[in-house]
Design a protein around this nucleic acid. Structure first.
Length: 865
RNA sequence: GGGCGCGUAGAUCAGCGGAAGAUCGCCUGAUUUGCAAUCAGGAGGUCUCGGGUUCAAAUCCCGACGCGUCCA
């Protein structure tokens, strides 16, 4: 950034001077005479015990002071946005106040909710999680206080000079800092393809705010001006509060009540972890994150597990539940919504605590086993083993060392070694909830083709229409207007006919709705002519029914299970539909029945389902962020589907206009598709009847075949299974008896039994059993003292040998097999007590047995070793 | 989204190419006993599923499914 980017009227009027910091070399602006900027390391912390502000403030009053200061200066105060930004799908968490307005406002697609505005936005930053407590200043969540102005062609609000002026006045006249102590250090900010100059505001060593002026778009190496210039500021509420109190660490200033209410055993580094992590988790949970083993759910679990590990350091003094109660008590004063789901909170904590102790117990035994296993290999566990144990079992090295008999030194770079294992993973974007992975294999129409006018939103009941054919490429056709619904929002494509030609698939592509015909050369009126469209009405009706049923089910699940439930994906087909929700365990039959009852009662009540278009900001204000159940939705206007007093979602699908049209909703089954996520399979309307009828037919058939009335089917089956098991057992016993009989016959046969000197007897025979039978027979023979079994079998294709010996030292089965294989031309192997082979059938098989017997006789003749 | 580990008796797991095992629990019978009793006997298995390699696969390879864990 060039120097002139930082010049402004306010600096000039107030005689700010620009100079390079003597220590870091960075240019900064100030009215003071200091040669260095006011940030560490150039200026050390010097506010502890000596605040530059005129009075100490807590979080609540500092936040209020800030917001009302900007309100008095023409800014509209906004409520906080959720920490989970479901209006976008590129990030997991809100990490700065400007995330609230990306991408729709900052790209100019929609007007800002107010302009200028001020907000205190809770933000999540997990990168410093290891530092919480230890550095005295790190937190995983903080509030970013901000004032934003959006300057476009039509409206100029304010820009650099006023921004700096507002900041300077706040810190000096409002809070009481001396102007000459403040430095405005030049920085360049870049993010999301946008960039611009920024200044960081330093005071007594601490960076307390950053003022960013987003004004350029990166275009290769060149910078192009943005159509909308954005004032993007960030003031750390916790840092302001800390500075006003001048406490040794940020934690005393931010969590005074919580620290006081914790048992005395928990003092600062640990107490900060408890307070910070618990507060963070509360926000995550309230805003719809359920602990899990992937993605954002994993971070929620990580917080809880770090808390649990900390609590274990002082066993019996504090429970996870009580800690959370304490934190709720203090934080809910400013954020009452955090106390809105006590039942769900208690339940999720209980489940997570249980899973954690299971994981630890499992891990501990695995560590002990590992040590034993390594002992056999003649070595003892080393650091790499501990890394493996942590990575795949979750056992932290301190716990692992406790389980080992020999001490292993845990190096300080232990977690760096863990990180090494994961360095090759490429950083990937987040798919987001309900993101439609529509692979565009469609041809690209020229931009001159006008956008398609769509009617299915306003009127989902019309199936016949006439549209002008605007463009065609092979099977793909664009009309000036259409009633065909394109795949999207989890609802699959409409089908039907266009001028008599079957329409197989309809997709949205940019501004167009594109219809794919069944054949690339299907006859069709030429471009410019009208074409008669006909949407398959039965298919459409079923898809609509399933879609409205999905919303009903989602609403009912939130009411029965709790507000933590979010839609995590959905699919609405003709045959059936499914809905994925966030929840920490599978649904109980009781919960499921309650959900079905509720859904169907709302169906019977025939509530209106209203679909309207609302400006994004209006919709968010009116219905809250719960409308983003289906994930991020594009556009400045949202289509809102509102089932009266039951469920409101932003949704582009086709819907019934009254709940009674859904007819009947039946959940067919549920499954846990991953940790923290449950999938429901269900059917509605006509299809529900069909499925119920199919099920009934199946049941009737089963009842007939079992010759038992329907209600007796399960018990009849039980009896049948018992009998089956019994007869299996009998058959097994009979087979065993058969084998025993055969063995007895062979053992005493003058033909097949061959004495091998004193005390040994070889049974040489071909008995055409399968391999298992042969083996059983051999076992029977070798259970007799001195028994040596040399058995063969054959089927139509090949022959098999199975040799076994009750005296593997004197007559090793493997050594008997070797000459047999040679004489026979088969393949095989084994050990001294048993050996097997396979090869040709017929006479060679007999030769193999003879060769084996000859070898056995040789061994019998040789003196025992 | 990715890495790693794991799926064997009701439970916890061993075995890691050559004839399915241990401990606890369960059943039967003795013993009649200070509390997780002892002794003897017994039942209980599609070694997750599907392919492949091999004379031979719980074991090796590939794939699916499930579970766990770590990282982003």
């Amino acid at each position: 950034m060039e120097a002139k980017e930082y010049e402004n009227a306010f600096f000039e009027k107030n005689a700010f001077r620009r100079r390079a910091c003597k220590k870091c070399g960075e240019p900064f602006w100030s009215v003071g005479s200091s040669e260095v900027c006011s940030e560490v390391p150039c200026t050390p912390y010097s506010f502890q015990g000596n605040s530059p502000f005129s009075q100490p403030l807590d979080l609540t009053s500092m936040r209020e002071l800030y917001l009302s200061y900007f309100e008095r200066r023409g800014h509209a105060r906004l409520r906080r946005y959720p920490v989970v930004p479901r209006w976008r799908n590129d990030v997991m968490f809100v990490q700065a106040s400007v995330y609230d307005f990306q991408p729709w406002v900052t790209s100019g697609a929609i007007p800002p909710p107010a302009n200028p505005l001020t907000i205190s936005q809770p933000c999540m930053r997990f990168t410093d999680i290891e530092n919480v407590g230890t550095t005295g200043r790190h937190l995983t969540m903080f509030e970013m206080m901000a004032h934003h102005a959006f300057n476009g062609a039509s409206k100029e609000v304010y820009w650099k000079d006023r921004t700096v002026e507002l900041c300077h006045e706040l810190v000096t006249s409002e809070l009481g800092a001396r102007p000459e102590e403040i430095s405005y250090k030049e920085e360049a900010w870049e993010g999301g393809g946008n960039l611009g100059p920024s200044v960081s505001v330093g005071l007594r060593g601490l960076e307390i705010a950053t003022l960013v002026f987003m004004q350029y778009v990166r275009d290769g190496d060149a910078l192009k001006p943005m159509p909308l210039r954005v004032v993007d500021t960030g003031y750390g509420l916790e840092r302001f509060t800390w500075m006003s109190q001048g406490t040794p660490t940020i934690y005393e200033a931010v969590f005074p009540g919580i620290l006081k209410d914790l048992p005395k055993d928990f003092t600062l580094p640990e107490a900060a972890v408890l307070a910070d992590h618990a507060k963070n988790f509360l926000f995550l949970f309230t805003d719809g994150i359920v602990p899990s083993n992937v993605r954002e759910g994993y971070l929620a679990r990580l917080l809880l597990r770090r808390i649990l590990r900390t609590l274990e350091k002082h066993p019996g003094t504090l429970t996870l539940f009580d800690l959370m109660q304490t934190v709720v008590r203090h934080v809910a004063k400013d954020f009452p919504e955090l106390a809105s789901n006590p039942k769900g909170l208690g339940e999720v904590l209980r489940v997570e605590e249980e899973r954690f102790s299971e994981a630890i117990a499992r891990g501990r035994t695995q560590v002990r086993r590992l040590e034993e296993r390594l002992k056999k290999e003649g070595r003892s566990p080393n650091v790499d083993d501990l890394v493996m144990v942590y990575d795949s079992l979750g056992v932290t090295p301190d716990v692992a060392v406790e389980e080992l008999s020999q001490k292993v030194e845990v190096p300080s770079d232990f977690f760096a070694k863990v990180a090494e294992l994961h360095t090759r993973t490429p950083a990937q974007g987040w798919g987001g909830y309900g993101a439609d992975a529509v692979e565009a294999k469609v041809p690209e129409p020229p931009p001159s083709v006008p956008p398609t006018i769509v009617h299915y939103h306003r009127d989902p009941y019309t199936h016949e229409f006439t549209g002008k054919i605007l463009w065609r490429s092979g099977p793909w056709v664009i009309l000036d207007q259409t009633y065909f619904y394109p795949t999207g929002g989890g609802q699959i494509t409409d089908r039907g006919h266009l001028a008599g030609a079957p329409v197989e698939e309809v997709v949205r592509h940019g501004p167009w709705v594109m219809h794919r015909l069944s054949h690339p050369d299907a006859p069709l009126p030429e471009v410019g002519a009208p074409g008669q469209g006909r949407v398959d009405p039965a298919r459409r009706r079923q898809l609509m029914t399933h879609h409205t049923a999905t919303h009903l089910l989602n609403g009912a699940l939130r009411k029965v299970l709790g507000p933590h439930v979010w839609q995590a994906g959905a699919y609405k087909g003709v045959e059936g539909a499914r809905l994925d929700i966030t929840h920490w365990q599978g649904l109980t039959p009781l919960e499921l029945r309650a959900v079905e009852r509720l859904v169907n009662s709302v169906v019977r009540e025939d509530r209106p389902v209203r679909s309207t278009f609302e400006p994004r900001a209006v919709a968010e204000e009116k219905f809250g962020y719960g409308i983003y159940q289906g994930g991020a939705v594009p556009g400045k206007e949202l289509r809102i589907v509102d089932i009266e007093n039951f469920d409101v979602e932003a949704c582009g699908g086709t819907h019934c206009t009254h709940t009674s049209e859904v007819g009947f909703v039946k959940v067919l089954g549920t499954e846990r598709i991953q940790d923290g996520m449950v999938r429901l399979h269900f059917v509605a309307g006509e299809r529900a009847l069909e499925v119920m009828q199919e099920h009934d037919t199946i049941l009737q058939e089963a009842s007939q075949k079992l010759a038992a009335p329907v209600e007796e089917v399960p018990r009849a089956l039980d009896r049948l299974l018992d009998r089956l098991k019994e007869s299996h057992k009998e058959a097994k016993a009979a087979a065993k008896a058969d084998v025993a009989e055969i063995a007895e016959g062979l053992w005493n046969s003058p033909v097949d039994a061959h004495p091998l000197g004193e005390g040994h007897r070889a049974v040489v025979a071909q008995v055409d059993l399968d391999r298992e039978g042969l083996q059983a027979l051999a076992r029977e023979i070798t259970s007799r003292a001195g028994g040596v079994a040399l058995l063969a079998a054959q089927d139509e294709k090949s022959g098999t040998l199975f040799f076994a010996s009750s005296d593997p030292k004197r007559f090793p089965a493997r050594d008997l097999l070797a000459p047999a294989l040679k004489a026979w031309g088969g393949k095989g192997g084994g050990n001294p007590s048993a050996a097997s082979g396979s090869g040709p059938r017929g006479p060679p098989l007999r030769a193999a047995l003879d060769a084996a017997l000859a070898r056995a006789r040789e061994l019998a003749a040789a003196p025992p070793a």
